[in-house]
Design a protein around this nucleic acid. Structure first.
Lengths: 242, 242
DNA sequence: TCAAAAGTGTTAGTAGTACACCCATGT
DNA sequence: ACATGGGTGTACTACTAACACTTTTGA
């Protein structure tokens, strides 16, 4: 099988995505595990079709992994060291080469394709983790959410990619009001605050945080949310788009 | 002549640079003119060698055009629409094809190479315009500085690239204290202010501006500058690096 | 002595931070 | 009634914006 068709994709150029989700007070990142046969961890990635814009390529790759369309997505940096050759994956592939060639999983040209140095465009995505049912990539053994503070050692510079993406996210969270992409449709003010605390890894003062967020004038207040707890019921809010 | 060697460079990937300079109260951009034989205008650009990092490639391209090493350089966005095919240049090349092939200026594979869609990594650079002696690229008829507000219509999305670069520059000027790269070694406070006014295209209050810049604690005050004008002589300042 | 522009100071307004208080909720 | 957590108000601080005044320079 021609997994990577030279005619269809741009050579030596890839997209790698840091997909952020939020759950149980933790900021999480979607990471794939590939068995070759020893395990390596990677960010979801892919390649750019000849007739496809890079933004659409990133969307397509995201949809393949999350099942979601309409994902918040931002290009944040290009990683282009000449040492970006995927030794871990490629050597793993070489172990399986004879088997995969005979089984027709990969053909010779695909091995050639993957042996080169790659320039990778980094995107980060923000998703409502509850809406995602992670799907394995073609070669993945599994995919899973990892706390951004406890990521496995990934291939190449993928850990550095997450660091840079988190940095970019922190820069933009306040200015572009994108944090709500990580939350469900409706949420309480406490949940917003806990999200911010997870992203910035530091506490915020409750009352001032509420004032700051409400002063943004981007939330509409809905009905109260009665949880059964013996305290005042918090309001639900919804992000007002336009 | 093999102008674009497929073995040496990464295919379908380019770098385009917005080189900012500052002179006579105007923010300027370095633009090349190419005669094919009708004239088209382009940003300085180039390609990435197989064994070269993208940052070094950008530096090399900048050095080729400005003669300067040690330029402030920042990667700000990737432009990756599938329509980024260089029709203007390529059709111009086709006009000259027979002549150039016979003269050995370009070979057939170079035409092939240039006919593809390109993904371009956008960098912007800040230079002391007095230190630059612009050099023509291999195919350029001329290079010159243009006021950022009065740029010629350039090929493809190059005008949009400048807009995005200016946007990024405005974002970073304050935070990263990079504006001094556009000024000579020493300068007066008025010159800093005029630079800021050129970049943001709006006036600043003189006294508050001075206070703000001095409070950054990045300038050292030198001797006064006597210009012969019948007014108080302003101090010279120097940017303190460390 | 005067105009021009540089330097500095003073006040008002605004945004952010810290602290305090009251209110709704279910046991 | 009471603990718990939610909502709001007030005072303090820091930063910015607006205005005013003084100083230096050379004609």
């Amino acid at each position: 099988m021609k997994l990577f068709d030279e005619g269809h994709f741009i050579r030596q150029l890839s997209i790698d995505s840091v997909i952020f989700g939020y759950q149980e007070l933790e900021l999480k990142v979607l990471v794939s595990k590939v068995d070759l046969p020893h395990s390596v961890w990677t960010l979801p990635g892919g390649f750019i079709k000849q007739e496809e814009s890079i933004d659409l390529a990133a969307q397509r790759i995201l949809e393949e992994r999350t099942g979601l369309t309409d994902i918040y997505l931002e290009q944040y940096r290009v990683f282009g060291e000449p040492t970006r050759i995927n030794h871990e994956i490629f050597e793993g592939f070489n172990n399986m080469k004879a088997e995969w060639l005979s089984k027709g999983i990969l053909d010779e040209s695909s091995f050639q394709w993957l042996s080169k140095r790659f320039v990778s465009i980094g995107y980060y995505a923000l998703v409502d983790i509850n809406k995602v049912s992670p799907r394995r990539g073609m070669l993945d053994a599994s995919v899973g959410w990892y706390n951004v503070k406890e990521l496995p050692k990934m291939i190449m510079d993928h850990n550095e990619m997450v660091d840079a993406a988190l940095e970019a996210l922190r820069q933009n969270l306040d200015q572009k009001l994108i944090g709500f992409n990580l939350l469900p449709e409706t949420f309480t003010m406490r949940e917003v605050q806990e999200l911010y605390e997870a992203v910035y890894d530091k506490p915020f003062a409750r009352n001032n945080f509420q004032k700051k967020i409400l002063d943004l004038n981007v939330l509409e207040r809905l009905e109260k949310k009665f949880t059964g707890a013996q305290n005042k019921a918090p309001y639900l809010y919804r992000f007002r788009k336009e």
